[in-house]
């Protein structure tokens, strides 16, 4: 067998393997997703975050504007604090904006729905490090069912 051809093909094999690793590293398991651009952080306190995870998307009307970068519990009042990394392409949301935890489809991923508020005089823009005041927690199916049954029981009286 031709030694040159053997070595060439093994070289091609190695290149293909590296290509596969790069594809898997950059496109499939991307750690630093789209943070190629600069981001700024906003914080939001929720009563219940449901199944929200780090790296879940933050969307405005379906358009992804950022990712959840951190989730931790506030040490003073024991409520979850979610850190949102928003792309600097989308700056100047008004202070009155609200966030809620939504689910894509019936069984899909949970994500943070971002609702830009109305902007009028006296309302400031959200800046890096600000807390979002108006938050709506994740819908937890068990709670909903419990509430529904409780209400039914009440109306029977």
């Amino acid at each position: 067998m031709n030694k040159y051809k053997t070595e060439l093909m093994v070289g091609v094999f190695v290149v293909l393997t590296i290509g596969a690793i790069l594809l898997l590293a950059l496109k499939v398991a991307n750690q630093t997703m789209s943070s190629a651009g600069d981001t700024y952080s906003l914080y939001a306190k929720f009563d219940n975050i449901g199944g929200l995870k780090v790296r879940s998307a933050v969307k405005v009307g379906g358009v992804t504007i950022g990712r959840v970068s951190d989730i931790h519990l506030d040490k003073d009042d024991y409520t979850p604090v979610v850190t949102l990394n928003i792309s600097t392409d989308y700056e100047g949301f008004p202070d009155t904006s609200s966030v809620s935890i939504l689910t894509s489809g019936l069984l899909g991923e949970q994500y943070v729905g971002f609702q830009p508020g109305f902007s009028f005089d006296g309302v400031e823009d959200l800046k890096n490090g600000d807390y979002l005041q108006d938050t709506k927690s994740a819908l937890v199916l068990e709670d909903l069912i419990g509430q529904f049954l409780f209400n039914r029981g009440g109306s029977d009286d």
């Binding site: 398991a29 997703m33 790296r55």
Partner: peptide
Amino acid sequence: WSIMQSTVEW
């Protein structure tokens, strides 16, 4: 790609 990226861990 993006949901894949947010799910798959290296």
